[in-house]
Design a protein around this nucleic acid. Structure first.
Lengths: 117, 117
DNA sequence: GCAATATACATAAGATTCTTAAGTATTGCA
DNA sequence: TGCAATACTTAAGAATCTTATGTATATTGC
């Protein structure tokens, strides 16, 4: 991986939300797959760095939100992650938090001037 | 000030954008006023910390995006900030970046499923 | 009148979250 | 066969914020 990122400061704090959401949607993914999916969905605007992604996956696993299974493709290893039960509720919660964050920022930055026009 | 913050990780990286936008809208503000305005606009969901706000104002001034004027209200000092010319274009740019960030996040998180329904 | 709260600024130490970088190893393609 | 892509790991350093502390004036309630 190379992996850089769009307007980086703004992305700080969004990584866990992204990972949890993708796992909720896809069910089961491995690290590299997640990075590729994010790249694809974001039209290459978000390029996760390995140094951010893998430690985050380890943290989420340590918190009990993800379960991991190693699988071999020939000799190459893949570590598949899935949401645990608490991980699922964490995913929903993170999504709600993100929506609230967006709504609040819209108010502060005068974006989308009240959709009742 | 006390000043804490909503879902803090997500707000990381948004402070400069917020400050520049408010100065663009209001024309001229001092630090404490900015913190109160953000609190008001965000319905108390964003409470800036002094430790974040004042150093950020100093940085923006050092970068030449803000100009500062000290004013005395009796014996109490206030430091009023305004956008410089380059500060104005920085403000517009930061707003565009933020909009792009939101659009990209909507794609990645499957929010607002294409408003052409 | 005096204490508590609000106004108003500044800055240093520590935490969090990322970027950069380096390491290891397998697989596919030209 | 050598380079790019796949796949994971971890450490050092940067950026951005929180927490904490300090200073000082103004206002409000009792």
């Amino acid at each position: 991986m190379y992996i850089a990122i769009m307007k980086k400061e703004l992305l700080k704090g969004t990584l866990k939300t992204i990972v949890l959401h993708l796992l909720e949607k896809e069910g089961r993914m491995y690290g590299y797959e997640i990075s590729q999916k994010v790249k694809e969905l974001s039209a290459e605007k978000i390029l996760l760095t390995e140094g951010a992604l893998y430690p985050t996956l380890h943290k989420l696993e340590a918190e009990g939100w993800l379960t991991a299974e190693k699988e071999y493709q020939g000799k190459r290893i893949r570590k598949y992650y899935s949401l645990s039960k608490t991980g699922k509720s964490a995913a929903s919660q993170k999504m709600e938090e993100f929506k609230e964050f967006m709504d609040t920022m819209k108010l502060v930055l005068n974006l989308e001037p009240s959709t009742k026009a």
